[in-house]
Design a binder for these strands. Structure first.
Ligand SMILES: [Mn+2]
Ligand SMILES: [Mn+2]
Ligand SMILES: [Mn+2]
Ligand SMILES: [Mn+2]
Lengths: 231, 231
DNA sequence: TTAATTACTTTGAATAGTCAAAATATTCTA
DNA sequence: TAGAATATTTTGACTATTCAAAGTAATTAA
């Protein structure tokens, strides 16, 4: 069994690899994600690599092996099921769920997890729209575009939010920009570097391109190749 | 914040003090309860004493201070609320709940705990009939007698089970000797060292005095002073 | 009351994680 | 291409927790 420390390293590694399309993750990046110094990350990564969960290339970075990926996905599954459980069953605030799940993900037994999964009806996405890995360790990653890519007049629906910070999520919630919400793009002038989006039944919200890029939507305008851009 | 290790020491200490009516708990006993060697317990207890949570008397034992007691009760509250939650909401087996709660009790936040408490309707006892300490750190310990003390022909109801081991609890469950179950004592001959108890709607169960003593009941026969005996 | 048994404490060593600061390597810039 | 700036790795040290084994005190038995 991997320690909770190692589980955290693996999970962050997996998430980061998604962002960087499988490239080696540099130590500095991993250290920042886990919240330790770079020296600590180097030490831990060498230990993780020794146990066969990752490949470590000095001065280049780390990458998960298949085994590491599987373990990371199990942790991520626990994390996301717990988030949904906390929100749906316990009524915990959307913006607090992530932090709570960060701890719980390491102590939930398989039995309890199975019960939670059942209680929630084998859900496929968490409260932020993030896909929940299957118990066999697979995730589907649908190609989505973001609010920033839509033209004025488009109508779409929020599917996923790419920022887990409590502050951002609180802002998203009060604005009405939550998963499943329908929105209309009112303005999107690339020159302005900001857009205006109006969630159904709510006043319009002004978003910088950086902020808009955090909201992934569907359907996407078929205008050209649909590309996803993450900050 | 006390570490999970220290929380475990404090909780076991509190439980043991209940058994021994407030006496100093000897190192060997504590070590066995926590599952470490006596030397380790000595070291930890000295650290705990240094932080003001217990009083350590070399070669005599340890005793919680008021502060230590309060902390222990908060851990116990988390433990017991979690047990009930696991059984009632998640449908976890009665006999597994204790082990699961043993881990969870250290990572549940106050927020989540409050939500669980609410969801369960501010319960006062856990699935084993153990009283749940209040959030302000108080427990009432009703004086109960055990099945072993009842005379043949008595009718009573199980209130609490004083053994948390999964095996014993499984036995209790299949026998029908669960909290709230009504039972009739069919035989109790002190000379035999065993009794026969029949739970309502179930076949009679033969119990040694030691086993019978683990089932606390109410009402108690007013015959003489009602005394509780724990193994 | 001496000797044996038992309980407890001390000591020395190990493991997992961590940081700060020093040493290196890489990459960028002029 | 020689610094300068940046990123990474190494080193030495520290905390928390644990065990095994050796030493010490207390209790029990004879
Ligand atoms: Mn975590
Ligand atoms: Mn999420
Ligand atoms: Mn515990
Ligand atoms: Mn209990």
């Amino acid at each position: 069994m991997a320690s909770r420390t190692i589980e955290n390293y693996l999970k962050q590694l997996w998430l980061q690899q998604q962002e960087s399309r499988g490239k080696y993750v540099p130590m500095g990046k991993l250290a920042a994600l886990v919240g330790v110094t770079a020296g600590t990350a180097t030490t831990m990564v060498k230990a993780i690599a020794d146990s066969g969960l990752a490949k470590y290339a000095p001065r280049a970075g780390v990458r998960l092996t298949r085994a590491g990926e599987q373990l990371a996905l199990h942790v991520l599954r626990r994390h996301r099921l717990l988030e949904l459980f906390l929100v749906e069953i316990l009524g915990i605030d959307w913006s607090d769920a992530h932090g709570e799940a960060e701890e719980l993900e390491h102590v939930i037994s398989e039995t309890v997890l199975a019960r939670i999964d059942l209680l929630l009806g084998h859900p496929s996405v968490d409260p932020h729209g993030d896909p929940i890995p299957s118990s066999s360790g697979t995730v589907e990653a649908p190609e989505l575009c973001s609010l920033a890519e839509l033209q004025a007049g488009s109508k779409t629906a929020i599917v996923r939010i790419m920022d887990q910070s409590a502050e951002f999520l609180r802002f998203a919630q009060t604005s009405g920009l939550v998963p499943k919400a329908a929105v209309v793009i009112e303005h999107n002038n690339p020159q302005a570097g900001a857009i205006s989006a109006r969630p159904d039944g709510k006043p319009p919200v002004i978003l910088s391109m950086a902020a808009a890029a955090k909201f992934l939507v569907r359907p996407c305008p078929t205008a050209g190749k649909q590309r996803r851009k993450r900050s």
